[in-house]
Amino acid sequence: MEISREEAIQSLQEIREVRSRIRTSIATGSTPFHMILWGAIWFFGYLASHFLDAETSGQIWTVLAIGGSIASGVMGYRLGSRYRLPGSHRIWQIWIFFMLYVVLWIWVAWPLEMEQISMLIALYAMFAYVLMGLWLERIITWIGLLVSGLGLIGYFLLPDVYYLWMAFLGGGTMFGSGIYILKRWK
């Protein structure tokens, strides 16, 4: 069997392209779907914090957080099961330990203002994105840094509209980034 140099180049290019597509698909898994989900949760949660009283918005946040965690678990399980790879359970373990430590840090730092709690949780979540991106795909790191930066600007410079700022720029950036990644990696 003989083929030309051009055919060989084309074949090798196709192989590289398929490998890269598979590796990206493995690396990213359900990440953009989680970003869309949590972007929407942040958006509605922070809007509630801005417009409603503390007690009502607290109840809304509780429902959103519990619903979001269940939806994230189901989504991660369903999308993660497209591949069977040695060691793929580690990302789940990292997130579980990470959430446990968030609760411990807030417990130790208690009492905290609502704005402080929301900023700390947002920073912890974005810190996880930054680390995950270094390990998987660099764009996740950039999104983590961008949302952290926007959050800090709102927290320190715009305290009066902090929740509104987080709804549109924090939640909106997460949601938009999830859609962008989904389209880019498709």
Partner: peptide
């Protein structure tokens, strides 16, 4: 070498040893 089979094999080999895809 058949183009579709080559892409299938490239995808499966990218999974590394003992990896499976649905």
């Amino acid at each position: 070498h058949q183009p579709v089979r080559m892409r299938i094999m490239a995808a499966l080999v990218a999974l590394d040893a003992s990896g499976q895809v649905e």
